[in-house]
């Protein structure tokens, strides 16, 4: 866990592309919101593996948003329930239900569909917000915090040595 956090900080402070980190966070949000072993999550994880996104950020993002998903589950389920039981969408879902892939993806489950739809809608703004925040962080916050004595004390800690080790390993990498 500490290694992952160190990797994230390294990515935020280092040379990793802002877009790679923001995309990792957005995709982590999409995956974290749904139950882990669903068909669409497996496909997203596949793409995360082959597209150059920051893996450490992605894993942390999945962990964080899974916790958030647990807390928001009643609302996620309500969204799924509303969509699947809406008379206006009944024909649309009945047509989709005839495909095995739809059933295999469990999109006829209120939680899975609610999470997928909310994740799909919100991952785009989350991408742009993350990009903006990381950019601001690199310009203002990093240099602002570096001035504090506590940060200097932290630099002398075990965590910082781990951080520098990670930074050394992944210079310019993921």
């Amino acid at each position: 866990m500490l290694t992952l956090l160190a990797k994230l900080l390294n990515a935020l402070n280092g040379d990793s592309s802002i877009r790679q980190i923001a995309l990792a966070i957005a995709l982590g949000f999409l995956v974290g919101l749904s139950p882990l072993l669903t068909l669409h999550n497996i496909i997203i994880i596949f793409f995360v593996c082959i597209i150059r996104v920051h893996l450490g950020s992605f894993i942390l993002s999945v962990g964080f948003f899974s916790g958030l998903s647990y807390l928001l589950s009643p609302y996620i389920v309500q969204v799924g329930e509303y969509l699947l039981t809406s008379p206006a969408l009944s024909e649309f879902f009945t047509a989709l239900y005839q495909f095995s892939l739809f059933k295999l993806a469990h999109w006829h489950h209120t939680y899975v569909l609610g999470a997928f739809v909310l994740g799909g809608l919100l991952c785009v703004p989350i991408y742009f917000i993350s990009k903006l925040v990381i950019d601001k962080y690199r310009v203002h916050i990093m240099s602002f915090f570096a001035k504090f004595r506590i940060v200097q004390a932290l630099k002398a800690s075990k965590f910082y040595s781990l951080y520098t080790a990670v930074a050394g390993e992944s210079k310019g990498g993921l």
Partner: peptide
Amino acid sequence: KSEEVIENKVHAKGRFIFFKE
């Protein structure tokens, strides 16, 4: 079960909705 889902619980699990086939 649908009533159960709508209840404002701390954690909800959801349910399958089955359509005509």
